[in-house]
Amino acid sequence: MTSTSPHPAQSGSVDQRTWQALSLRWAALHDAAAAVAALAGLAPEVPEHAVRAFPGLARDAGARRFAAVEQGVADIAAIMQPGLAALLAVNARGQDARVPALALWQEFHAARAAVLGLVPAEGTSRRSA
Rank of each mutant, 00 (worst) to 15 (best):
L24P: 00
A110F: 05
A113L: 09
A129I: 12
P44W: 08
P47L: 04
L116Y: 03
A9M: 07
D75R: 10
R52G: 05
L39C: 11
G12I: 09
H7I: 14
E48S: 08
P6V: 07
E45R: 06
G56P: 03
I79C: 09
F54N: 00
P55A: 08
A63V: 06
V115D: 03
V69H: 00
V46Y: 04
A50R: 12
A50Y: 02
S3L: 08
F108Q: 07
V90R: 10
L102S: 13
V90Q: 12
G94K: 06
L24H: 08
A27V: 12
M1H: 13
L116P: 00
V119I: 08
R93H: 12
S5K: 02
A85L: 10
N91A: 15
W19C: 10
Q20G: 08
G94V: 14
G123E: 00
S13P: 02
F66K: 01
G62D: 05
E107G: 07
A68V: 12
R25C: 06
Q95Y: 08
D75F: 06
W19M: 10
V90A: 10
A78L: 11
D75C: 04
A37G: 13
A50H: 08
L57D: 07
G83T: 11
L57M: 11
T4S: 13
S5Y: 05
Q81E: 15
A78P: 01
L57F: 05
T2C: 07
E70N: 05
R17K: 12
A89R: 08
G83D: 06
P120Y: 03
A114K: 11
A43E: 15
A58D: 01
S3W: 02
G41W: 08
R25T: 09
R126W: 10
D31A: 15
I76V: 15
E107D: 14
A32K: 14
V69N: 03
V69A: 05
T124N: 11
W105Q: 14
S3V: 08
V99T: 15
G72Q: 02
A58F: 00
P6D: 12
R64C: 06
L118D: 00
A78G: 15
L57E: 10
D75E: 14
A9I: 15
A89W: 00
L39S: 12
P120W: 01
W26Y: 04
A114H: 10
W26D: 02
D96K: 05
A34G: 13
L24R: 13
D75Y: 02
D96Q: 08
E45S: 05
T2I: 09
W105C: 11
